[in-house]
Design a protein around this nucleic acid. Sequence first.
RNA 1: GGGGAUGUGGCGCAAUUGGUUAGCGUACCAGACUGUCGAUCUGGUGGUUGCGGGUUCGAGUCCCGUCAUCCUCGCCA
Length: 603
Amino acid sequence: MACGELRADHVGTEVVLAGWVANRRDHGVVRFVDLRDRYGLIQLVADEDAPAAGMEGLSGLHPEDVIQVHGVVRMRVEGQRNPERATGDVEVLVQRVEKLSSAVRLPFEIADHIDVPEEMRMQFRYLDLRRPALQQRMALRTRANQAIRQTLVDAGFWEIETPMLTRSTPEGARDYLVPSRVRPGSWYALPQSPQIFKQLCMVGGVDKYFQIARCMRDEDLRADRQPEFTQLDMEMSFVDEEDVYALVEQVMAAVYQEVLGTELALPLPRMPYAEAVARFASDKPDLRNPLEVVDLAGCAEALEFVVFNKVLADGGWVRGLRIPDGGRLSRKQINVIEAAAKDAGAGGAAWCKVTAEGPTGPLSRFLKVGAEETPVDCPVGIGNLSVAGADFLRCLQARPGDLVVTIADHPRRAMVALDAVRRKAGELMDLVQGPDQLLWITEFPLFEEGEEGEFHPAHHPFTCPVLEDVPALEGGQKAGIRSRAYDLVLNGTELGSGSVRIHQRALQETIFKAIGLAADVAEERFAFLLEAFRYGAPPHAGFAIGLDRLYALLFGAESIRDVIAFPKTATGSCPLTGAPSVVDESQLRELGIRQDSANPNEA
RNA sequence: GGGGAUGUGGCGCAAUUGGUUAGCGUACCAGACUGUCGAUCUGGUGGUUGCGGGUUCGAGUCCCGUCAUCCUCGCCA
């Protein structure tokens, strides 16, 4: 029997409990100790009904000592019960106590209400893990993983483990490298994802594969990024997008049911990438935020605003957001929105408040009526507008009381800035409410356009293009070529992505050519995969979900570090073990590696 | 690699324009106490103010450097 499981049903039973001393309350002739194990807390008591051994056993204990007690469960009398605790109706009258191990003074208290620096929580993670909040997240994580496995195994999937020591592929993130002792000068790489192996599984006739896989990328970190993280990786043969959507939706529904106890409404909504960008200036829109972007290209020119006209002439975006009732935002709050746009890389944000007397704010002078004109009669009651100004606000469907924020910039920067403005305005206006919004973003572009107008592949080179775009692709076009790649988005966060893969050699060669990967280079880097595809490759498609991020969102954790048992810091170090660390010179010698003498670790 | 924030007993915080022996809460230790449950009461231990320089009669406070942590941009096919 465990501490946290005792209830009124157990009254009268003799129990042997073991756990950690969570708290002591010593009244001299009555002593209480709260004993904690993974299942919860139980109050131990020694009073005049307890034998001397019990009374003595409960004295001289220190916080976090590990003890075993023999005792009898008894009902607490009315008025002494603690409804705050699951075990609060009962207590254990102690017969004898055995101290299994004692604890020195702890660096922090084991209680959820104590605020502890994160670095210290990581350094003493084994103590942090004793705290109920973190334990609950580990329990939830176990159940969610189990729900995933159950769903996939029931659907006929095999769980296949792929190598951790594999071959470096220069694309994508930096690899973590591992030297080979047996073959000096050669290196393994830790997998950035099991991508290639899962495709090989498909060629191998494993038509339904999944794995809860660790992935490693040697890149700088963020609150939602760790050097090693966990993905749910899936792949299927003889399927198309629809099968992947259906499967992933089933998995998500199972996780929602298990973790939150809620039904996920299926099927999930879908939105092509182009629509998401046009309406929300994002490939991962938060649909809880009702604000939408308006393209002002058609009605901005007549304003004779130099910045707008210059951007339009250069092929840039002039787009804006109407924030209903945003007129109530203070100048300070609008500055915050403007700062968000600037942080995102835009030169600025031109805005105006709309009132019955006319527009106010930086943009207003381009909208107001000139001295010798007569104001336009505006049907929604905005005063003092020029013809072009009225047209501009009509595009935005602005009404008195609104705030209008516009961004003019290169498309790439404008998009990021509009997204930032939309998020910030949604936050300030308290618009982001309601149930979770999961959706599919489909038909991602095959190529991304950089700041200088150059194109580079948006995904790995095995992503299948949309078939009707292939002729244009063969003709050398890159802009607007769609791929059969898709993302799953939750409340403005990308949870995962996947694609239909290329399984035909001719198309693969077209893609290699289009992304500027010479045939011989491609052959060298992906020789084994391309070779495999020669022996009969099934059409296949897959998906991968970042579980740390998903769980952090579902469990209400602030950081993915709070859903990982042993996380690392923002510089990839582990305060608990001291990793990464210097190693013995002899270890390096054995590996045939000579360390740069400038290495600061030597000092 | 860039930018920002933080760093004072174990933990959370304070310390006037640079000015006495660096305070408070909590935890911890000891004692007291008949029912507590984040017990209470009394007493006590505990500090190289992240580290290294500098300015000054005098530095927790000002300056320079450095380290660590967090956030963020770049980066993460």
